[in-house]
């Protein structure tokens, strides 16, 4: 069975390094993008099982990325987990309305994140 493939989207190089280590250690295959725009362009020609995205990013933020992916037939049902420092209910509601699959507030727990990925990856 092939490993679950994840795209992480975060403008922080430190957070990308932490996610890469945490997820590959759990047996996942990991691709990374630096912002929503780069992720959207990459997903136009590539497939992943799960997207994990930050909210606050330059060019295209996490809300915009989710909205654009949901308008694309190929990504309409793609599991998208939001991983963010934002803790407000308003931001969480906005992510859910945009079509996010789940909401995780940083700092994340690697075990819980891996469990969530396995659960939404089908």
């Amino acid at each position: 069975m092939r490993p679950t493939r994840i795209l992480t989207v975060d403008d922080s190089a430190s957070m990308r390094a932490l996610l890469l280590h945490a997820l590959t250690t759990q047996g996942f295959e990991v691709e990374q993008a630096e912002d929503g725009q780069q992720a959207f362009e990459w997903l136009a020609t590539n497939e992943v099982d799960v997207v994990i995205t930050d909210i606050n990013m330059p060019r295209l933020d996490g809300f915009g990325l989710i909205e654009q992916l949901r308008e694309t037939a190929r990504h309409a049902d793609r599991p998208i987990l939001v991983l963010t420092t934002e803790s407000s209910d308003e931001k969480k509601r906005r992510a859910r309305d945009a079509g996010a699959t789940g909401w995780i507030v940083k700092p994340f727990d690697a075990e819980k994140l891996a469990t969530a990925v396995r659960r939404v990856a089908h």
Binding site: L81, K92, R96, A100, T101, G102, W103, I104, V105, K106, P107, F108, D109, K112, L113, T115, A116, R119, V120
Partner: peptide, 13 residues
């Protein structure tokens, strides 16, 4: 130790 608020809980919609 890491504070309890930093539990990394996951909420699926």
């Amino acid at each position: 130790v890491r504070p309890q608020s930093a539990s990394g809980d996951v909420e699926l919609f």
